[in-house]
Every structure is written in C-alpha cells, then in structure tokens.
C-alpha cells in the first residue's frame, strides 16, 4: 500500500507492506536511523518519536496508521546547527553514555517539558518511566532534563 508521512518537514511517500511498523518505515524507508529499536514489548522507549506532536513508541504504531501524519524524529530536533535545549542538556550534564536510548529520551523529554515546563525531580522520573537507560542510572538524565527545563524557561543556568 502507498503511505505518505511527513517526517521532519519532508514528505516521504513509499509503497510498503501493510504490516510495516512505523519505526521500520522511519529507519528503512526514510533512512532516518536515529530512531532505535530496543525491545518488542513497547516498554523501552528507544523508538519514541512525536506523531502529530504526541510522543509515541513508533514500534507500536503501524506505518499505515500513520499515513498522512507528521512525525518528528531526533534528526528533526535541532534547528540547523543550533541544538535544541534538551540536546544541550543531555550533552552538558552527561545524560548519555552509549547513546542508544538517547533519541527516545530526548523525544519523550520534549513532550514532558511541553506539558510541564517546571517539573520536580519526581515528576521527571515519573514522566520518563516509559524509557529505559542501562548506562546512566538516570541520575544525569534527571539533571539534563532540569538543565533543559531551566533553559527553556529562559532562566540563567547555575553552574554545579
């Protein structure tokens, strides 16, 4: 079947099998390999993207169901060379190690901070329960999100 999905502002029209998962569409049809596959039970969150502005696990959406939608992946987060504050936060606070789960965390954080611009530590931890990280113990991910939240609120960033 023919499916058209606008990814990061660019239209991708592809002829695919009906059963193709959105994550496979993004990686294999659109060639956007920043979105990762970490599990098959919709729990790890590595495949998180924004679908019409909502953070979703792209391994649990059929590409067919996403026909006509707009998707933002990690590749679409920065504006040209200017990093998104969330990307900056993860870099600044060492919120990643192997980097595999990172795109999912970044995209989930976009939604988290959109809904709650000034989250407490508990709210950050609860808000990111849909994403697994095996490297960081989440400590610096929390710091990264706090950094990004402060920056997005326009606050001066305090040094450690």
């Amino acid at each position: 079947m023919k499916v058209s999905i606008k990814v990061n502002g660019q239209n991708y029209t592809r002829d695919i099998e009906e059963r193709t998962l959105l994550v496979h569409f993004l990686r294999e049809q659109a060639g956007l390999t920043g979105t990762h596959i970490g599990c098959e039970t919709s729990l790890c969150g590595a495949c998180t993207v924004l679908l019409n502005g909502n953070a979703v696990k792209s391994c649990t959406v059929l590409a067919a169901s996403a026909d006509g939608t707009e998707v933002t992946t990690v590749e679409g987060l920065a504006k040209g060379n200017e990093l998104h504050p969330i990307q900056e936060g993860f870099w600044e606070k060492h919120g990643l190690q192997c980097g595999f789960c990172t795109p999912g965390f970044l995209m989930a954080t976009v939604q988290l901070l959109e809904r709650n611009p000034n989250p407490t530590e508990d709210e950050i931890r609860h808000g990111l329960e849909g994403n697994y990280c095996r490297c960081t113990g989440y400590h610096n991910i929390v710091k990264a999100v706090q950094f990004a939240a402060a920056k997005m609120r326009g606050e001066a960033i305090a040094a450690d």
């Binding site: 919709s42 969150g45 998180t48 909502n54 953070a55 979703v56 696990k57 649990t60 959406v61 989930a108 939604q111 988290l112 808000g127 990111l128 329960e129 849909g130 994403n131």
Partner: peptide, 9 residues
C-alpha cells in the same frame, strides 16, 4: 496506565 507514550496512543 503504562507511561506517557502509551497514554498518548
């Protein structure tokens, strides 16, 4: 239910 992403879908 689930997590933020699950509740979105």
């Amino acid at each position: 239910v689930g997590d933020m992403q699950v509740r979105n879908m």
